[in-house]
Design a protein around this nucleic acid. Structure first.
Length: 258
DNA sequence: ATGGCTTCATAGTGAAGA
């Protein structure tokens, strides 16, 4: 099973890139974040023509998540149970026996903002819920834009970023708490090129200078991590005209071993 | 240098992203 995550920063603008990427990479599951459109406008027909079923939870202007898949999803939820949140940031479903949890973690803006407190509270609720989900679903993948660079090696200039939002110790503690539920950072299960990032600022020629952060992740439960054969970042879409500022992360799981 | 780009909502600018 080939699964992937991509913050597309507007599905309306990025649909041609998404369709091209699906045709080339043929994933079984692609989780999208920042679709930025209401459900009534979701391009379900175009994606169906490309061979993908769609689940989506969107809103006007901001946020919005979707799951594109070859096979149908079951037991779909669009929110963290018991956590009141007007922002559409969660979509979970079960595909071919694998629980897929797609998240768009709040950005946090800056460590002294209300949005940062919202981010930390949101992560706490996510972690509590994921503990329950893992008990129900041993085969679980948590994919998305986490808006957290977990380690210094995930940041192009750790000194310049020290203490900032996306790398602050409380955010990294929250990421560690997720891992301690029994979720492996699949990217780090394998040797990777140095200075591997998944997001580059649109400004300052950041991509050309590789001034990036690794903030998009695929976390796998122990049962899935054992059978994960590869995880990589595909930087190619970041080189296209009018790219998203994020690029896809892909993992493959050998589901024939059990 | 608290900017730089990009998107959206909107019809000249402002919010938000990371």
């Amino acid at each position: 099973m080939k699964i992937a995550t991509w913050n597309v920063n507007s599905l309306k603008v990025r649909l041609p890139h998404v369709l091209d990427w699906l045709a080339v990479h043929q994933p079984d599951v692609l989780c999208l974040q920042e679709t930025k459109q209401e459900d009534a406008n979701f391009p379900a027909a175009e994606l169906a023509a490309a061979g993908y079923q769609t689940l989506f939870s969107g809103q006007k202007t901001y946020n919005g998540v979707a799951i594109l898949s070859r096979l149908a999803g079951a037991d779909t939820v669009t929110a963290i149970p018991g956590f009141t949140d007007a922002q559409k940031r969660v979509l979970a479903t079960t595909i071919a026996g694998v629980r897929i949890v797609n998240v768009y973690v709040p950005n946090g803006q800056s460590v002294d903002s209300d949005k940062y407190q919202y981010k930390l509270g949101w992560l706490k609720a996510l972690t509590a819920w994921l503990g329950e989900e893992l008990a129900r679903h041993p085969n679980l993948a948590l994919l998305g834009d986490f808006n957290i660079a977990p380690e210094a090696c995930d940041v192009h200039d750790p000194q310049a970023w020290e203490g900032q939002v996306l790398v602050s110790p409380p955010e990294r503690d929250a990421f560690r708490s997720l891992r301690q539920l029994g979720l492996a950072d699949s990217f780090r299960l394998f040797e990777q090129p140095e200075k591997s990032y998944s997001w580059w600022d649109y400004r300052m020629n950041s991509f050309r200078r590789n001034m990036g952060l690794r903030i998009d992740h695929i976390l796998l439960s122990e049962a899935l991590a054992r059978h994960c054969t590869v995880c990589r970042i595909d930087a190619a879409p970041r080189k296209l005209e009018r790219p998203s500022d994020h690029t896809p992360v892909v993992a493959e799981i050998d589901t024939n071993l059990d």
